[in-house]
Design a protein around this nucleic acid. Structure first.
Length: 553
RNA sequence: GGCCCCAUGGUCAAUCGGUUAAGACGCGACCCUCUCAAGGUCGAAUGACUGGUUCGAUUCCAGUUGGGGUCACCA
């Protein structure tokens, strides 16, 4: 009588490796007490999702803070959805955020002793473990066609029983080894299913590192572990890989909670110690009053590339995500005067339990803070890098006149309370247009927003008098005194108090006088510090602009 | 539908049974000020509902409701 050994040999004739061999090949990691081994294990199906950045940041931080290891594994078992090159893209995007793996798959080849780190290259490992499972009677070939499965499901629905391949509905579960061998020899296509010993009426418990104890129905379905294409399903690959890669904590999205009993079932069947699980809440979005997961298809902000292209500073996005992960991060940033997430004492237990709505306002806030706090040289480098990739206009300005752009970025920066007007590098180009003569000419080709209550001959006089008398290269106070004097001689108030006391005695207020210069120079009634602008523009440019505008009036 | 997770202002949220229920973003007002941004001060705004347990519940328990997830040879 043929038995499961014969079946296993027939199924995997070429497999000689055993589980013991694998245990020896991947020894326990030599790490200090409490060190966590975590991983980010995406499928190469596109660009980096904002939720993935969040999860990977958490995984990375847990490993780093515990003195452990963070690795990157590519889960490319779904050949239909795999997009060529997206694994490498994912790594590049992660790298941009400083999330670099200690070991794992890289475009140049694997790094680390627990590989391969690409699931499609681990077939021999999966097959060895599955062969053993078949031998032990804990896995078996299933010959159902998709139509058979569909039929089973339909009958279950009709009878209002739970759908799935389990118990009496698991058609091929109790075939004898002999029957199985017969069908295989007859050429019937098969997949391998895990044979569950679970009882649906019982509960399995596990402790989630974030949520605490979770109790779920025991798994009793015989899930597919090896697909007809010879690749494992996620369920099996997770158990097998994370065991041999010696992962200690699985950080994954909360959508995995319901399938955890399947994984625990398999760990038990294999006699392996399961890792800790930390199910991370999803980042949500409000859509017509309903919360839903950030969706790659519907939401631009679901793609990390969206933020990169718009020029959000990486540190700002990270800081925002960290504030969602641990809400005490904000207090910490205030106390420590830094937004550097790598220095923050992250605690996974403090993660909130429900998914946060993605908050653009708050992201903008963090990014403004981060940009304002970045020293000018560093900022200029980051802006240059951004411009090179995403802002042609800015890039050419930087190439032809880098120092000028740098000076503009430095306006009101080097002080206790720096300006905070850029949330993203993409905001820069539109707001600094007026500094460049070609753009300024376009601006002044349109009517300028001078105050209508002030006669244009006065405006012209103010402009011309400034050309003559306004000092350059002096302190701001001295410069402004001079402006006041010029204005005063034309009938503007030299103090706002005087003006308020008797407005009709003046052509306009102190502000009105300054505004004339601002409008002529920038084309707008609003601008950063006028003195700094004038110093950056330089005497020649200022003289030219004021004269041109005066002559037009 | 079964099962699971979650529930404090518009958003992110603190509180380990007793608090005037923190703080941050956003919003509003005022102050500062040559405009804007920044900064400062102040303000509006929160415990889903119903029962229990308790001297006392936002906090513990149950149910209801609501939201989310999951039930593939996808991950």
């Amino acid at each position: 009588m043929p038995d499961n050994n014969d079946l296993a040999e027939l199924l995997f004739p070429d497999v000689t490796m055993t589980i013991d061999d694998l245990e020896a090949r991947y020894p326990a990691r030599n790490l200090p007490e409490g060190a966590q081994v975590t991983r980010f294990a995406p499928s190469p199906t596109g660009f980096l999702h904002t939720g993935s950045l969040f999860t990977s940041m958490v995984s990375y931080t847990v490993a780093k803070r515990s003195g452990g290891v963070y690795f990157f594994r590519l889960e490319d078992t779904d050949t239909k959805r795999t997009i060529e090159g997206s694994g490498d893209l994912l790594i590049r995007e992660l790298h941009q955020f400083g999330i670099d793996a200690d070991e794992g798959y890289t475009p140049e080849g694997d790094k680390g002793a627990y590989g391969p780190y690409k699931q499609s290259e681990r077939k021999d490992i999966y097959r060895a473990v599955i062969k053993e499972l078949v031998r032990r009677g804990r896995a078996y070939p299933d010959f159902c066609t998709p139509e058979d499965l569909d039929k089973i499901r339909k009958s279950q629905e009709a009878n209002k029983v739970l759908p799935g391949y389990y118990g009496v509905y698991a058609r091929d579960r109790n075939l004898s080894a002999e029957e199985r061998i017969e069908r295989i020899n007859a050429g019937t296509p098969w997949v391998i299913r895990f044979k569950s010993n679970g009882d649906h009426d019982r509960k399995t418990k596990f402790v989630d590192a974030i949520r605490g104890e979770i109790e779920l129905q025991d798994n009793d379905t015989d899930v597919v572990i090896l697909k007809s294409d010879g690749l494992p399903t996620y369920h099996f690959a997770h158990v097998c890989d994370d065991h041999f890669m010696r992962t200690t904590m699985i950080t994954r999205g909360e959508e995995w909670i319901p399938s955890t009993p399947i994984h625990l079932d398999m760990f038990r069947a294999l006699g392996w110690k399961p890792p800790k699980y930390a199910h991370i809440p999803s980042i949500m979005k409000l859509d017509h009053g309903n919360k839903r997961k950030l969706s790659k298809r519907k939401d631009a902000e679901a793609a990390v590339s969206y933020f990169i292209e718009a020029g959000y500073p990486e540190g700002g996005l990270l800081a925002y995500l960290m504030s969602i992960a641990n809400s005490n991060f904000e207090e910490w940033t205030m106390a420590n005067k830094t937004y550097d997430v790598s220095r923050f004492p992250f605690n996974i237990k403090k993660m909130s339990l429900d998914g946060a709505l993605f908050d653009m306002d708050k992201l903008n806030f963090f990014c403004k803070e981060v940009i304002a706090a970045t020293p000018i040289d560093e900022l200029f480098a980051a802006v240059s890098k951004y411009a090179k990739a995403h802002d042609e206009d800015l890039c050419s300005r930087i190439t032809t006149n880098g120092d000028y752009v740098k000076a503009i970025l430095n306006i009101e920066k080097d002080r206790k309370n720096p300006r905070k007007d850029y949330a993203k590098y993409g905001d820069i180009t539109p707001s600094i247009r007026f500094f460049f003569d070609d753009e300024w000419e376009k601006i002044v080709a349109n009517p300028l927003p001078f105050k209508e209550t002030i006669p244009s001959d006065i405006v012209a006089k103010m402009l011309l008098a400034s050309v003559e008398k306004m000092p350059f290269g002096v302190e701001e106070n001295d410069w402004f005194s001079a402006v006041k004097e010029i204005g005063g001689s034309l009938g503007f108030a030299v103090s706002n108090k005087d003006y308020k006391a008797n407005p009709s005695a003046f052509v306009g207020s102190l502000s009105d006088g300054a505004e004339i210069l601002r409008v002529a120079l920038t084309g707008s009634t609003q601008s950063p510090n006028l003195h700094e602008i004038i110093e950056i523009l330089g005497k020649e440019r200022v003289t030219k602009r004021l004269t041109i505008v005066a002559n037009k009036l």
